[in-house]
Design a protein around this nucleic acid. Structure first.
Lengths: 331, 331
DNA sequence: CTGAAAGCGCTTACAG
DNA sequence: CTGAAAGCGCTTACAG
């Protein structure tokens, strides 16, 4: 390759990584030789020598969850723009793989980590927190971690859900919860309570149904809901899947949504458009979450100082008013 | 590290990659030193020297499509079992990124490729087909490619869809198509026609509505369907998303599914359980597709001979009879 | 069973 | 602007 162009390997290297350092004639000779031989530089050698991989590890709690597909699309855009690729580390809803993922980063196989799982992976050969590996948290914030974070305004949106229902005349508003150890669940529940208080309603006397973000737990909550007396006229579910399970079960029981019960979800998953009635919910800017996280991480990996105002971003989540909410039934 | 254990770097390397070659006492000394220092071998150096990366490139047509999330889960299981990790190459429904993905493999950044996109990526610095990089096609077969492939019995299932509807007494059965250049669409359409013939119905006189696998195209087909005279009593959609868009539009127009129109989908996406009525469809073994593809690829990367009987697998797709199909209305 | 030494394929100060 | 040379951190025949 180098000899075909009549130059040293150093010059070939420069032609590929810093072409402006070469005389145009030399560059042209190398370029032509590269084209003719189909030469591709060996990445492992480059990484070893340059001490960077141009790769990021994206830690995902559950790759089978379509929510993350869109976030990953944003991540892809943000990273590829700057020449970075990414590896996906799937936790598959457990913590068993955390040590393995931590070690990938500790082995220098990636230049940084994007955490979508709300936790810094534990159990690696060394501590990731104590390392100087750039990390950024996206979607689920990591409390206490001194890294840039990008999340949505969970609390504000939940407050707004209650305000919206109260404006429609609802006074008995129930909450369908996510898993209690989950960060976004706690934020949304907190916002729900604040919203109740702000609307002059009692958060204490509100009904709370337990759930775990699955369709099945929405079904179970609906069953409990049907037994509740007096029955609430509205329900705010901590995510769309549960809301959809709830609505479907209500309809099977002959309860008309939204005439007899109004329902608000959270996330804006694609399916919320397809159900009958269409679900009133909050649209999470999934792609934007991924894109911003990637952009922050690139800055960190380049060693750029991150503007403190940018270091913790809270993106707004617009309310989509659709078919599942209506005026409260007259008493 | 090596000096802490009082051995050479060669011995450390053996302790990590071939412990059985060491005397237990030596191994113990090294293991202890590794533990105390938190030493992690540099992957780039290992790759450069050993000439393999233990990484696979998975080419996905659209990472935002939840269908692939489950396939990837199977891929993850199949690969991690053998110590391999994977990189995701997202084509984002276009071909613009093909050269880039081809070059990742050609640069030796991965040991093999898993193609979920029905095409060997083109436009790299060299030809991937002419290279000796192990490749396996999954989900969408690649016609003419001499590589192992894993797909589902698209044609057989489509035949079965028609047989099922014919058994229910339907005679005017329509087909809602996918994009004409798509491999699975062609298989399913072929199966539909064969099924019509087998049931003694005319495939020629059947109505074919164009579509592109999206919800929106199902809605459009429904609008056309409503104008059709005589109106078919059943429809087989080439995928679930279109089937759901179709059903939803039917219901909005006051047509009762399945009493007035029976609908069969394809894929068995999660949402097919949530819609009203639940969709009769074919459940694709997504995870299994990924797992088998990964297993075949591992064998190929290890240079093992692949049993010809295993080289092209057609997995069965069970029919799920649910709420969207019923006896044909009496004429 | 273990060590000394070569070498994987690049990049990058250092000269010139 | 270009080349010679060192060296990134491992693995692996080759000796012993």
């Amino acid at each position: 390759m180098a000899q075909l162009a009549g130059v040293s390997t150093a010059t070939v290297s420069r032609a590929l990584t810093a072409p402006q350092k070469l005389r145009p004639a030399t560059l042209a000779r190398v370029t032509e030789a590269v084209r003719r031989t189909g030469y591709t530089p060996n990445l492992a050698a480059r990484t070893l020598r340059a001490r960077r991989t141009m790769l990021v590890l994206v830690v995902v709690p559950d790759i089978a969850n379509p929510f993350f597909s869109d976030v990953l699309r944003g991540v892809d855009e943000g990273l590829s723009q700057h020449g970075y690729g990414f590896l996906i580390g799937n936790l598959a809803r457990s913590r068993a793989k955390e040590p393995q993922l931590a070690n990938i980063a500790l082995a220098g196989q990636v230049d940084g980590m994007l955490l979508l799982n709300g936790r810094i992976p534990q159990g690696g050969r060394r501590s990731l927190t104590a390392s100087d590996i750039p990390m950024v948290a996206v979607c689920e914030a990591i409390e206490g971690a001194r890294i840039p974070q990008v999340e949505v305004q969970n609390r504000e949106a939940a407050r707004q859900a209650v305000a919206h229902l109260a404006r429609l005349g609802h006074r008995r508003i129930a909450y369908l919860a996510g898993p209690p150890d989950n960060f976004v669940e706690r934020e949304r529940r907190g916002g729900f309570c604040e919203g109740m208080t702000a609307a002059g309603l009692s958060a204490r006397s509100a009904r709370f149904y337990p759930g775990d973000f699955t369709f099945a737990s929405g079904v179970a909550a609906a069953t409990a809901f049907l037994q509740t007396r007096p029955r609430p006229s509205a329900l705010f579910a901590a995510n769309d899947e549960m809301a959809i399970g709830f609505v479907k079960t209500m309809r099977s029981a002959g309860i008309v949504v939204p005439d007899q019960v109004s329902v608000v979800g959270f996330d804006g998953i694609e399916f919320a458009d397809f159900v009958e009635p269409t679900l009133t919910t909050f649209r999470q800017p999934r792609r934007e979450l991924g894109y911003r996280g990637a952009t922050l991480l690139v800055a960190a990996m380049r060693g750029e100082a991150i503007d403190p105002a940018q270091a913790h971003q809270y993106l707004p989540v617009p309310l989509l008013e659709r078919g599942s909410t209506a005026l409260a039934p007259a008493v």
